[in-house]
C-alpha cells in the first residue's frame, strides 16, 4: 500500500512558500501562517486555549470571537474554529457570556406569549435594530425570531432559531439587553413539547415495552449461541432504501402489529 504518499494526520499542512501574516491577539502582534483558522492561529502563536475552545467544528458555541479589520470601523463576529485569519486582524475571544437563564417547570407553562412575558419580559424591549442578526455567526435571523415571539408565534421562533449554538453574541450586542439565546431555547422546548404533534407510534411502543411484550424475543436472542445469532443476523429482512411506503415485511414474527 502506498500510504506514505499521503498525509492522514491532524496537523495542518502548509504548502511551501506560504506567507506569514500579522494578526493582533488582544492587541499583541503575532506573525501567523496564512490560511489558518483563528483557533489554529492562536495555537500557532503559542496559546494553550482553556476557555474559548470546544468542538473545533462550528457547533458548540465556545469560541465566539470579535474582530475588526484594518481601516474598517465595522465590528465583526465569527467562530474561531471556522474563520480564516486575515492580515492585520484585531481580535479577541469572548471567554464567557453573562446572561440569566430563568428556571421553569416545563409541565406548568403554556406555549404562548404570556409565558414569554413572564419568564423573559425584556424580550418586548426589542428596538428592531437588527444588531443581533448581524452578530450571529450562524446566520440566524435573530431579530425575526424575537419579533415572532413578541407576536406569540412560538413555532416560527423555534424553527428560525433551530441552528442556534448559544454562543451569546446576540445578547452581548443587544441595546435592549434581551437574552435571545435563552428565550429561543424556551421557545424551542415549548414547540417540541406542546406545538409539534406527539408521535403516537412512540407512545404505543413505550406501552408495549413497559407491558413486557418484547421480553420473549430478547430472552430468545440472549439464549442463542453465537452461531445461531450470526445466522439470524444474516437472515434479517432488509427494508429497502430509499424509503418505500409500499414496503411490507414478509416476516412478522418479531413485530407487534396492533
Amino acid at each position: 500500500m502506498a500510504e506514505q504518499e499521503y498525509t492522514i494526520g491532524e496537523k495542518t499542512i502548509v504548502l511551501e512558500g506560504t506567507k506569514k501574516i500579522p494578526i493582533y491577539i488582544m492587541g499583541k502582534r503575532y506573525e501567523v501562517l496564512e490560511g489558518l483558522t483563528i483557533m489554529k492561529a492562536l495555537e500557532f502563536a503559542g496559546y494553550q486555549i482553556k476557555r474559548g475552545c470546544g468542538c473545533r467544528a462550528g457547533i458548540c458555541g465556545a469560541c465566539a470571537t470579535v474582530y475588526r479589520l484594518k481601516d474598517d470601523y465595522r465590528l465583526r463576529f465569527g467562530l474561531a474554529c471556522q474563520t480564516t485569519v486575515e492580515p492585520e486582524m484585531y481580535l479577541t475571544q469572548i471567554p464567557f457570556v453573562p446572561a440569566n437563564k430563568t428556571t421553569y417547570n416545563m409541565d406548568e407553562i403554556t406555549p404562548d406569549v404570556s409565558t414569554i412575558e413572564k419568564l423573559y419580559p425584556e424580550t418586548f424591549r426589542c428596538l428592531a435594530c437588527n444588531t443581533c442578526t448581524k452578530a450571529c455567526p450562524m446566520e440566524i435571523p435573530v431579530m425575526d425570531y424575537i419579533q415572532a415571539l413578541m407576536r406569540g408565534d412560538i413555532a416560527k421562533a423555534a424553527e428560525l432559531s433551530h441552528s442556534c449554538i448559544m454562543c451569546g453574541m446576540c445578547s452581548m450586542r443587544c441595546p435592549a439587553e434581551i437574552q435571545h439565546f435563552h428565550v429561543a431555547m424556551l421557545a424551542r422546548r415549548l414547540y417540541g413539547k406542546y406545538v409539534q404533534p406527539k408521535a403516537e407510534h412512540l407512545a404505543k411502543r413505550v406501552e408495549q415495552i413497559k407491558a413486557g411484550k418484547f421480553d420473549w424475543m430478547l430472552d430468545e436472542l440472549e439464549s442463542l449461541s453465537d452461531e445461531e445469532l450470526r445466522q439470524r443476523y444474516k437472515d434479517r429482512e432488509w427494508e429497502p432504501e430509499p424509503y418505500d411506503p409500499a414496503w411490507k415485511p414478509q416476516d412478522t414474527k418479531y413485530l407487534i402489529l396492533e
Binding site: A158, H162, R189, Y191, Q196, E200, V206, I209
Partner: peptide, 23 residues
C-alpha cells in the same frame, strides 16, 4: 430506546416529524 425518545419528546426536544407527529 423508545423510552428515551419519549422522555426527550416530553422534555420538549424538536424532532423531525411528519405533520401528524410521526417521526
Amino acid at each position: 430506546g423508545p423510552l428515551v425518545i419519549k422522555w426527550l419528546e416530553d422534555l420538549g426536544m424538536m424532532f423531525d416529524k411528519e405533520p401528524d407527529g410521526t417521526m
